[in-house]
Amino acid sequence: MNTEKGSLAWALRVTVPVAMGYLPLGMAFGAYSVSLGFAPYLAPLTALVVFAGSIEFLLVGLVAASVGLAQIVVTTLLVNSRHIFYGFSYPSHLLHSPFAKVYGPYALTDEAYALISSGVHPTTQRELLLVQGVSHFYWVFGAAVGAFAGGLVPDSFDGFDFALTGLFSLLFVDALAGASRRVAILAAAGVSIGVGLLLPRSLFLLGAMLCYALLCVLLVRFAGSRPGRSSGRRGHGSATAAEGTV
């Protein structure tokens, strides 16, 4: 088999870690979406169009709870705000065709970012797009399998309810392990969760996240780390924390 850099076989090989995450989680997403009452085709469609993992779980939950589009906009902004910082080290100089210039950033998920910036280091447009495209395929395929086969799972089986809790718990541990100010993070998150719990249930997520973002701004502005500390290392920690995020 031709595994020369830039071939499909090469892309399939280097994206194995992504496949290990995207296929089961994509299936969990498909089954979860169907369990909320959505038509099976909507899960792979969401996976194809949004391609952002955890927000997709939240999205189908929010739509099932009939929240407004404004709350979907704000939730998406907050949950995916971390993506803002991936663009800074994304090798956009490799992209030349108009399609590539749009699709590259479009498919810049946490895993794609982690793979591109730490493991694979693509040197051509073809290599970069292959890695991202193959990852995109895993996610859509997983969602389709979960949605169409998940409907065969009996109603009494509620195992997929764990998918979200498990995903976020593991991502939390990953993110905390990669962060440098853990006590501050835990304190700010604890306060934000407390504030969120005081609000009506439907505003918990929004209230707690806005509160946390605000506290982070205050932490940076008034309790920032000493100038001598390397920001490069923190940047790296953030990239490591993103590994495993969908």
Partner: peptide
């Protein structure tokens, strides 16, 4: 890309947001 305060802000966000999401799913 060289704004240190933005990098620091970005480094603080993920862990707390994930913990809030864990609590959200528990609710």
């Amino acid at each position: 890309r060289d704004r240190e305060d933005l990098q620091e802000f970005a480094a603080l966000l993920p862990a707390g947001l994930m913990l809030i999401l864990v609590v959200y799913t528990l609710l």
